[in-house]
Write a protein that binds this DNA or RNA. Structure first.
Length: 579
RNA sequence: CGGCGAUUAGCGCAGCUUGGUAGCGCACUUGGUUUGGGUCCAAGGGGUCGCAGGUUCAAAUCCUGCAUCGCCGACCA
């Protein structure tokens, strides 16, 4: 491609609304343009990269035995009513009507459509297992699209769905997909980690997310420093710090703490360790247990107290999963707390608290600790379980932190930010039962299909790769993703017939050899050309100038290493192909 | 959905407090100059100042409403 006939669209300045580096560089390098919030046009350079990712994904999926299909983006509401998600999905599902006033949705995912296909096409266990995938545009009406194509409303996803009659078969395919995903991300040159993930509302017994490690990621990943254990922090188990509390050494005493409304203030004013304090958080109780509470009759909502150590953070997902706690988690308001306890947040604690209490594992092993007295402006110091207050129910309620013991017993945890680029899970029969997708098994009996589902955020990978591969001059593409492998930069071509001749010849030679080459034939100054090609991130640059032509040589420059070497013109093709 | 902020040329911004009919840098066009890392000089083109009302002799500027975009939070497969 000649730049003079191309839509380059590079920019020197960064648009003000681009926050993360990948978004800034994608705009500056002329890869995408925003059409509306969360909606982007892929311009030529960006589209080439997107196609590269798609192709790697497609090849590895096929290698792993999956077969490609293409399902519609617009889907009839009937199918969603059948699965129950027409009502369950919420406002992220964009619902539209056609001219006949019939309901449709813009597909955020395709379980319904694929189940519908398979229940018609598959009648016998002999046709299984089957793994179908597509690379398709999805639409999720995100509340807050951000970071460019990293979290957009319309995006490209590879989704695959496998169908089985036995759990063993599902597990086989799941393992195959796990390996295929590792191959894909390795081929794309990404630094990634598979992590144990939430099976969530979808159920099933196994799920992994694949995260590209990057500081701009939206998820926190906990991983062991000495084993393969890795999990989303939302899920990572916080193991008990000690089995038994130390023996009590202090008597419990009530202290006036009128100025200590926060843990921080308490710690500073009374010179105590934050590890010897606890936080008491009041949340709404689940309806099923509400009848048993002793909350005052006039309290509108039944409440539960959750207690964690002063320096720990509540994990809201873990808390909401507890059977006594309302899901989703709802924090009690100031008024609710005062009505129930008689004191406000900042003076709460386990002693004399008249509501169910659940304490974190770390809290269970504390002794001589401080907590609010449930009386405005007072705290108890030197509290000990059993002696001063009965030990409440213990649960895992907190977020793990760097330095915590790994739940698998090997090593300690580190925490890193990750961008979720893939997610695989074993669905089970949730959709096949709802959608009545079954086959006759070997015994001649009808059986619901067991499903697996495997997603990759194709467009998100482009952004994630840039997050990991950039410098002050722009993008540094991994070879597999580069829009062009080589660029030819002729110095002052319009003044030198020799330079032009060599450039044209080299361009033709590389093209003929199947190398993706961008020939910068603009009448631009060298600095402009260098800057643009580095911004776009093309791995290999060939500089042609009078300087080297007497020796029949040109200069080669590597984008990633920055290393330069002088090459004979005849050796350029081999050099580029060997890289 | 709540809080905060923004909206002036393709991009980045100033002007608004104190009302007088719009400017800077980059980009673009033309001429010259320069030519191995975003040259320099000169001359140009381009804006219903987000939209709709209101106040005023006069509104980018003051007031009201709306829209869009963004940030924080909440939410979320």
């Amino acid at each position: 491609m000649r730049t003079s006939q191309y839509l380059l669209g590079t920019m020197k300045e960064t648009p003000a609304d681009a926050e993360v580096i990948s978004h800034q560089l994608m705009l500056r390098a002329g890869m995408v343009r925003k059409v509306a919030s969360g909606l982007y046009t892929w311009t030529p350079t960006g589209l080439r990269v997107l196609r590269k990712v798609e192709q790697v994904v497609r090849e590895e999926m096929e290698k792993a035995g999956a077969i490609e299909v293409l399902m519609p983006m617009v889907q009839p509401a009937d199918l969603w009513e059948e699965s129950g998600r027409w009502h369950d999905y919420g406002p992220e599902l964009l619902r539209i009507k056609d001219r006949h006033n019939r309901d449709f949705v813009l597909g955020p995912t395709h379980e319904e459509v694929i189940s519908e296909l398979v229940r018609k096409e598959i009648n016998s266990y002999k046709q299984l297992p089957l793994n179908l995938f597509q690379i398709q545009t999805k639409f999720r009406d995100e509340i807050r699209p951000r970071f460019g194509v990293m979290r957009s409303r319309e995006f490209i996803m590879k989704d695959a769905y496998s169908f089985h009659t036995t759990q063993e078969s599902l597990e086989d395919t799941y393992k195959t997909m796990f390996d295929a995903y590792c191959n894909i991300f390795n081929r794309l040159g990404l630094d990634f980690r598979p992590v144990i993930a939430d099976t969530g509302s979808i159920g099933g017994n196994m799920s992994h997310e694949f995260h590209v490690l990057a500081s701009s990621g939206e998820d926190d990943i906990a991983f062991s420093d000495s084993s393969d254990y890795a999990a989303n922090v939302e899920l990572a188990e916080a193991v008990a710090i000690a089995d038994e509390p130390l023996a009590a050494t202090q008597a419990m005493e009530k202290i006036a703490t009128p100025e200590a409304k926060t843990i921080k203030a308490l710690v500073e004013q009374f010179d105590i360790n934050i590890e010897s304090t606890v936080k008491t958080l009041i949340v709404h109780a689940a309806d099923t247990t509400a009848k048993d509470t002793k909350a005052p009759a006039n309290a509108p909502a039944k409440l539960v107290a959750l207690i964690i150590r002063g320096d720990h953070e509540l994990n809201e997902i873990k808390a909401a999963k507890h059977s006594a706690v309302a899901s989703p988690l709802v924090f009690a308001s100031d008024e609710e707390i005062r009505a129930a306890v008689g004191a406000g947040p900042g003076s709460l604690g386990p002693v004399n608290l008249t509501m169910p209490v659940i304490i974190d594992r770390a809290v269970a092993s504390m002794s001589d600790f401080a907590a609010g007295a449930n009386e405005e402006g007072f705290h108890f110091f030197g509290i000990n379980w059993n002696r001063d207050v009965a030990l409440p129910e213990v649960a895992d309620l907190r977020n793990v932190r760097a330095g915590d013991a790994s739940p698998d017993g090997k090593g300690t945890l580190n925490i890193a930010r990750g961008i979720e680029v893939g997610h695989i899970f074993q669905l089970g029969t949730k959709y096949s039962e709802a959608m009545k997708a079954g086959v006759l098994n070997e015994d001649g009996k009808n059986q619901s299909l067991i499903m697996g589902c495997y997603g990759i955020g194709v467009s998100r990978i482009v952004a994630a790769a840039i997050e990991q591969n950039n410098d002050a001059n722009g993008i540094i593409w991994p070879t597999a993703m580069a829009p062009y492998q080589v660029c030819i930069l002729p110095m002052n071509m319009h003044k030198s017939a020799r330079v032009q001749e060599v450039a044209e010849k080299l361009y033709a030679e590389l093209k003929a050899a199947g190398v993706e080459v961008l020939f910068d034939d603009r009448k631009e100054r060298p600095g402009v050309m260098f800057a643009d090609m580095e911004l776009i991130g093309i791995p290999h640059t060939i500089v042609i100038g009078e300087r080297n032509l007497d020796e029949q040589a040109v200069e080669y420059k590597n984008r990633r290493s920055g290393e330069k070497e002088t090459l004979k013109i005849a050796d350029v093709l081999a050099r580029v192909q060997s890289a």
